[in-house]
């Protein structure tokens, strides 16, 4: 029997994922990360219901360097998952499958997600008006 060396499946160590594949796995990864973020949201809501003192402590935790870093990443993940989710919904109704469209919508998702993330953080810092 003759064998050839053609790969049987995209072998992740030697195969560079094309953009649509990269965006696809990022969609899943951002979804998992956002599921963890939901815990942070409920933790925050619980803190509001627990009184001013507890809330202050939780706000300081979210306001720390690590807290802000996580919140920034969650914002980015939310906007990415939101934009790419809309892209998926268009596919679900059978539109946008042409290969050039797939690439164009992919780039659009990335640009819009980054822009909305930066914009909302700029807005947050602007509305905050200085302080800790």
């Amino acid at each position: 029997m003759t064998t050839n060396n053609r790969p049987l499946s995209p072998h992740l160590q030697v195969y560079r994922l094309p953009l649509p594949a990269l965006l696809s796995i990022t969609h899943r990864a951002s979804g998992v990360f956002l599921a963890i973020g939901t815990l942070a949201l409920v933790y925050w809501v619980l803190a509001i219901a627990s009184g001013a003192e507890e809330f202050q402590g939780v706000q300081e935790r979210f306001g720390s360097i690590t807290g802000r870093g996580l919140l920034f990443l969650w914002t980015g993940a939310l906007f990415y998952h939101l934009c790419n989710g809309v892209r998926h919904l268009f596919w679900d109704i059978g539109s946008g499958f042409e290969i050039t469209t797939v690439y164009r919508s992919g780039w659009t998702v990335m640009v819009v997600a980054v822009a909305l993330t930066l914009l909302s953080w700029l807005a947050a810092y602007a509305m905050r008006g200085g302080g800790a």
């Binding site: 939101l82 909302s120 947050a124």
Partner: peptide
């Protein structure tokens, strides 16, 4: 969740650093 997420971000951004 498309409109709800947009609403959520719009609501939460002005609350950055807000008191209880």
């Amino acid at each position: 969740l498309v409109p709800l997420s947009v609403w959520f971000v719009f609501s939460i951004v002005p609350l950055a650093g807000a008191d209880h």
